[in-house]
Design a binder for these strands. Structure first.
Lengths: 213, 213
DNA sequence: AGGAAAATTATACGATCTTATAACAAGAAG
DNA sequence: CTTCTTGTTATAAGATCGTATAATTTTCCT
């Protein structure tokens, strides 16, 4: 891909952008690279090329590449949590409707996308060796479990069933969904999205029937 | 680490090993490298150094490095599945005791080890971009779910409760455990191993009470 | 012993990677 | 219109990576 007939000593023309915007562009380019090549896609050169800029820009905006990856992780985490929370907020304000919305959103086409989940799994694999990403993950995981705990607590109060340890129950439900995402991502034949919804609802049904009392 | 006083033109002495043994040594060295450095540990040079051999040996035994990684994945998969299955076989032959053994083994110190689980997560992240590993994973996942399905089916027959779709229930239980492993690996403060056992038992209790009927 | 087969070392080559540095240009401000 | 700031390009340096190839050593077989 040659630049269209540049003179002998002309430099490439470029557009100057606000730092936050460029950072976001680079972060999204990173996500696209990970979609395409997994871990192997994480490279200054590939990401710069994907974003249509030179490598130096990444150094300039992020210092080292791990910082860019962590930033991309943050972008994605926020995006996912937000889209799910949004679905909950838009549901009818009854505990059951809100929980249903949560589950449905979790298995909507936005989430049941191998590209999305594939990037997610790659991030998981990076967290253990990146204190920076680990901190983000703990924060985000806490928020997530907290949200689930709220939904489950509201439901139990509304319907009058007992849950011995609400936080643990939320951990369990979260684990179930993560596990289903992972299983489907690695092997989409394992179950259909609608079956994922059903399995989550079955878990809730167990909760109703006092399995966690 | 210099070799002890080699003459000017002497070559390093070495021991010749049977191919299968050497392959296994290299596979285990690869696992150790992944423990230490995650994805970044996957490199011909690092693995060869870890195994105490030269790089060429990896090419010789595996051709390309991805083949070695896939082999390491197979080693680990078999090891884990075997240790769990063994615990089940050693339990009393009642459905409940066997299932208990399965759950207990799944949260024993052998599994609740961040090094072990960390490697596991790295492998997950590689599967999506490696047809060879993907094939292994599907096979192994099928075996695993099949084992779970057998345990759940036996219990339901013994205790006389109804499960609408046994395969789906096994998928769900498997997902719960994978999700708990993942959560604990990324954040060991999320719950204690004994609580993991309890959460699995709670899931089973839901099954008993007809949540999946 | 002696010799053949194959495991292993040693080395080289080209590609790609990360990071650092200097030059340049775009946009804003005076 | 000029000047200043800084986002951006361009380039280089050094490390690491994967793989190929040839030389050498071990080991087994006769």
């Amino acid at each position: 891909m040659t630049t269209a007939k540049t003179g002998p000593k002309t430099r490439a023309r470029f557009r100057r952008e606000a730092p936050e915007e460029r950072r976001r562009q680079l972060g999204e380019a990173a996500l696209r690279c990970i979609v395409k090549h997994g871990n192997a896609g994480v490279s200054v050169r590939q990401i710069a090329a994907e974003a249509g800029v030179t490598q130096g820009l990444i150094t300039h905006h992020f210092g080292e590449i791990n910082e860019l990856v962590a930033y991309a992780f943050d972008i994605m985490s926020e995006g996912i949590l937000q889209s799910i929370v949004k679905a909950v907020e838009e549901a009818e304000p009854t505990p059951k409707a809100r929980l249903d919305a949560f589950i449905t959103a979790s298995f909507s086409p936005i989430m049941m996308d191998r590209d999305v989940l594939g990037v997610w799994v790659v991030f998981w694999s990076l967290i253990l060796h990146s204190p920076r990403m680990s901190a983000s993950q703990r924060q985000e995981y806490g928020d997530y479990v907290g949200t689930v705990q709220g939904l489950l607590g509201d439901l139990s109060r509304e319907e009058g069933f007992v849950v011995a340890d609400l936080r643990l129950a939320a951990v369990s439900f979260t684990a179930l969904m993560d596990g289903l995402w992972l299983a489907w991502c690695l092997n989409p034949d394992a179950f259909r999205p609608a079956e994922g919804v059903r399995l989550c609802n079955n878990w809730i049904e167990g909760l109703r029937r006092g399995a966690h009392a």
